[in-house]
């Protein structure tokens, strides 16, 4: 009974917490990439004389963006398929939030203990991204169609890496429950697997979040705003919201699968946050140091990296399963 109440309370607590962390991660993405470019970026501490007008801190800048979009007029194009266009962002948000329920946070196992939670979480993450493709296709804009098509192609290859990496871990540990995976004991062989499958997962996260070399779905100045071209106001805000949840979810999943004990006990919280920030820093470094790939190059790159790394991970995973 106590466990049930704790789970329900933590499910309610995790949503604002995940939103806050997702917003902080995307703030860090923006701030760090600004500092990489010798800029200031969104200001953590506003200039003294501008504080009354522009606020004291911009730590929650992505949240302000979302709130502003909720306060704006929403335009729905006449040529769009109205229902799919309007409901896609909300469905994307719902699936992203649902995925978060299956990923543990230090001190909160949430629903990650249920059987097959790894598969459920990965399906929900995929569904969330699927609705960022379906909505734009329904908008009737050629730019959105091109962006969505690019996203489908990118999605297929990046998802391959994602699935290979999580199943390599699952085979090695013989478990499909995230909670069990996230508290598993480390060994030398598992560390080796963590490196290869972790690299694979990192590459997949790049594709899922449209970090720089793989940002061709929303290539600015090339295909307007890609999938989001026709979205405005509340609907765009909802997409941004689901992006923030997705960022949190993928980072949390990465930590819980590849840095085992960090996502289990509340005592690990500081280390968990440090690991998350390091991960965001690495994402930013990749974003800043790379130009945008063409879709063909991106697929080639994924196939060149994903297939060898995936096969390597699988061989290691099978060896661990059979031998150790």
């Amino acid at each position: 009974m106590v466990d049930l109440i704790y789970t329900v309370v933590s499910l309610i607590v995790i949503v604002p917490l995940a939103l806050f962390l997702g917003v902080v991660y995307s703030f860090l993405l923006r701030k760090l990439s600004a500092r990489f470019q010798w800029r200031v970026g969104p200001m953590l501490r506003m200039y003294g004389d501008l504080k009354p007008l522009l606020g004291t801190s911009r730590l929650l800048q992505p949240l302000y963006d979302i709130l502003k979009l909720y306060g704006k007029e929403t335009v729905v194009p006449d040529v769009s398929r109205r229902r799919l266009f309007v409901y896609s962002p909300y469905l994307s948000l719902i699936f992203a939030v649902a995925a978060i329920f299956f990923i543990p946070f230090p001190g909160m196992p949430l629903l990650s203990g249920v059987p097959y939670s790894l598969i459920i979480a990965s399906y929900l993450l995929i569904a969330s991204i699927l609705f960022t493709i379906l909505g734009p296709i329904a908008s009737g804009s050629p730019w959105a169609a091109i962006g969505a098509r690019r996203e489908v192609e990118l999605f297929l290859v990046s998802e391959l890496g994602f699935v290979l990496s999580i199943f390599a871990i699952a085979i090695a540990r013989q478990s499909l429950v995230i909670w069990e995976l996230s508290k598993g004991a480390q060994s030398v062989y598992l560390a080796l697997l963590t490196v290869t499958a972790g690299a694979l997962m990192f590459a997949a996260v790049l594709g899922k979040l449209h970090i720089k070399p793989f940002d061709m779905p929303e290539a600015e100045a090339e295909i307007v705003a890609g999938p989001y071209t026709e979205y405005s106001g509340k609907l765009l805000g909802t997409y941004y919201l689901s992006k923030a949840f997705l960022l949190y979810g993928l980072v949390a999943l990465f930590i819980s699968l590849f840095l085992p004990p960090l996502a289990t006990d509340v005592l690990w919280l500081p280390l968990y946050l440090i690991a998350a920030f390091v991960l965001v820093f690495l994402l930013t470094a990749v974003q800043v140091l790379n130009p945008r790939y063409r879709i063909r190059n991106a697929i080639n790159w994924y196939l060149k990296v994903v297939i060898p790394l995936g096969l390597l991970s699988f061989i290691i995973a099978l060896a661990i399963w059979l031998v150790v």
Binding site: R35, F36, W38, R39, Y47, V288
Partner: peptide, 24 residues
């Protein structure tokens, strides 16, 4: 990329942005 990273990190502590609308 390593060259770029080195260059970026060498001046990492100093953004070149001006403080324009502010008078601080």
């Amino acid at each position: 990329e390593i060259k770029i990273l080195k260059q970026v990190l060498s001046k990492y502590s100093k953004p070149m942005t001006l403080t324009y609308p502010s008078t601080v």
